[in-house]
Amino acid sequence: MKRALSMLSGPLGAILLVVVLMSLAMVVAGTSPIDGFSALFLGALGGRNELGETLVATTSLLFPALGITLAFRAGLFNIGAEGQLLMGGLFAGAAGAAIALPPAIEITLLLLLGAVGGGIWGGIAGWMKARFGASEIIATLMLNFVAAFLALDLVSGPLKGPVASGAETAWLAPQYWLPTLLPHTRLSIGLVIALAIAVVLQFVFTRTVFGYDLRAAGEAPEAARRSGIDLRRLTWLSLALSGAIAGVGGAVIVTGELHRFNTQLSPGYGFTAIAVALVGDLNPLWVCVAAFGFGILEAGGLAMQASAQVPKDAIHLIEGLIILVLAARRYVAARTEVA
């Protein structure tokens, strides 16, 4: 019994749970799970194009998930990755439409501007927490809305492209597009950048003083404070860095996929990324694996909707359940260790 419980509480249990829940969602929608899953996997992995789209979703989720991982490890609840992603994309899109530099320099600049945009957005919450003690949870949540409205205002007015029909900036010239990774797909080298950030993050966590301080602040803030770690500095820095990583993600979506900024940049990646970070156990390398899993769900969900008539929103319902159950599993795991 004990062994069965701890088996179920592992990653295998999580996958099993997803399969059961997905099957349920498919049966309710009037599709057999076999048809549903084959539609899902064919749609996610069935060919070059499909794999490309899955990896595009993986990339878009990985940046905010890594940002969230950094903040959570520091004990800070950054629920604002969605807004940080948007601000990063806005900065990159606005600059990309306006500035003309040699391509390599320009692309690098746009990605850095993405980091600045997201970093400012995360940094505001960090500054509020460090300076006033304001709850970073509420601050990051509110900033999501401010970012959405700000972006909408700017691209409906001053930043709107001259020939754009909707709320979006002008298109980036093709030489400023992020190079393609997988030919004939939308997959850009953004994926490589995301993976590199994951490796750097893992190195920072395990091999640097800053990473040690960060984890100490997250796991034992009082002990960290007494050992001389500047918690205020760590707070705003962690949230700014967390936002910056998400912001690069926004810039990658703009320069790599959309080739312009519009307000539909993210269908909730910043929130799904919380699930990704938790499933990856807040370990940057496992977060990469988790992002791929969620990328399959996101990309396959669309195919599942089209060919098996299972609403793709079932995916978000299931993501929420995963968050709840995975958080509960830690308790089950801890309890079985004691027992």
């Binding site: 969602a25 799904t272 699930a275 938790l278 609403p311 929420g320 995963i322 968050i323």
Partner: peptide, 16 residues
Amino acid sequence: VAGTGINLICTGGAAY
């Protein structure tokens, strides 16, 4: 974390 999960479940569930 649990509250965030509930938010996703409810918005996703309602859309579904």
